[in-house]
């Protein structure tokens, strides 16, 4: 076991736990934001740099601080480690920088983006970004690509988190899409635009933190905040059949995996459940989905709040104003 202190709150966790996991155990307002890390995907994380934290004390044995900010999703805790997340000005500054970098080439087409309302980049910008835009150059754009007839890739919106690539690698057999080109020309692509012909390909939509991969069957049907999520299940021979149905009135507009408070799906679901079962009669309804931190549905965050001890929200406002 290791004792780690994050923003003044101490928790004891198993050896091998990452700083991020430990922070999540404390609570949502202490946990660093993540854009690429996904606990269900092996080797995810480390790319986006939004979860950078300051390690002000390395461990009980070696109390020296770490010289650079570290990616909390990829750094293990040590006994006696002290970590500063939002209580570190360095972290807040670097994070605001990361938000700016991520938005640099992002189209900000939220008004017509199906992800709006449940977009992690929106949340991140709102909570950690600056209010001013300093870039004036033309943004990088790509043409939209259909990946099969159910998924659309809107590369212009992509932040290259690699989650979809890792999903394709780890839960589908025979990956056909990946990252091509280099640097800021890099893009998610099938290169020759092959359909992802696989029973689980639809999960790339759920793992995408932005509106780069969207469900064509839900395209422009409704703003997500006008839909109501219900938990439901069915007997499925491919997946667990446990899903969220998104209703508008009596119509099921879309089906997704069930997401936890970090916006991650609990279980990956198959394409049949996702795309082909859109009648209430296909499902056994369990009831309204519980509160979801990453959705406008949970704007009031009914979950119990644990505030960082060394830091209050007013401090953020003071810096960013």
């Amino acid at each position: 076991m290791a004792k780690v202190t994050i923003d003044g709150i101490t928790i004891e966790v198993a050896d091998g736990t990452t700083i991020l996991q430990a922070a999540r155990m404390i609570g949502p307002d202490v946990a660093p934001p993540t854009m690429c890390y996904y606990s269900k995907l092996k080797t995810s994380g480390g790319y986006c740099r939004t979860c950078l934290v300051e390690v002000s004390k390395g461990s009980e044995k070696d109390p020296r601080p770490m010289p650079k900010l570290v990616a909390s999703c990829r750094t293990g805790v040590m006994d006696g480690m002290e970590v500063k997340n939002t209580s570190s000005e360095k972290v807040r500054d670097a994070r605001a920088g990361v938000v700016e970098f991520l938005l640099l080439n992002h189209p900000l087409d939220c008004p017509v983006c199906d992800q709006a309302g449940e977009c992690h980049l929106q949340d991140l910008s709102y909570e950690h970004g600056n209010y001013k835009t300093r870039t004036e150059f033309e943004r990088r754009t790509f043409d939209k690509i259909d990946i099969g007839n159910k998924i659309q890739l809107h590369m212009t919106r992509c932040i290259l988190c690699y989650r979809c690539v890792k999903t394709a690698e780890q839960i589908t057999d025979g990956r056909v899409h990946g990252v091509i080109n280099r640097g800021d020309h890099a893009e998610i692509s099938t290169y020759v635009e092959q359909a992802i012909d696989n029973d689980f390909s639809g999960n790339v939509i759920d793992v995408c933190p932005v509106g780069a991969l969207t469900d064509k069957t839900f395209r422009f049907k409704s703003r997500v905040w006008f839909t109501k999520p219900m938990y439901a299940h069915r007997n499925c021979d491919k997946c667990s059949g446990k899903v969220s149905l998104w209703y508008k009135g009596d119509d099921v507009l879309r089906v997704t995996g069930r997401k936890d408070q970090w916006g991650e799906v609990e279980e990956f679901i198959c394409n049949t459940c996702r795309f082909d079962k859109k009648s209430t009669s296909d499902w056994v309804i369990e009831g309204p989905a519980p509160i979801n931190r990453h959705s406008v549905i949970s704007a009031n965050k009914y979950a119990k709040l644990v505030k960082p001890k060394e830091f209050t929200l007013n401090d953020i406002k003071a810096i960013t104003d």
Binding site: V98, N105, R182, G183, A186
Partner: peptide, 13 residues
């Protein structure tokens, strides 16, 4: 290489 955001976006900027 384009893996992490500060370098991918910042160098071009």
């Amino acid at each position: 290489c384009g893996q992490c955001s500060p370098c991918r976006e910042g160098t071009g900027w």
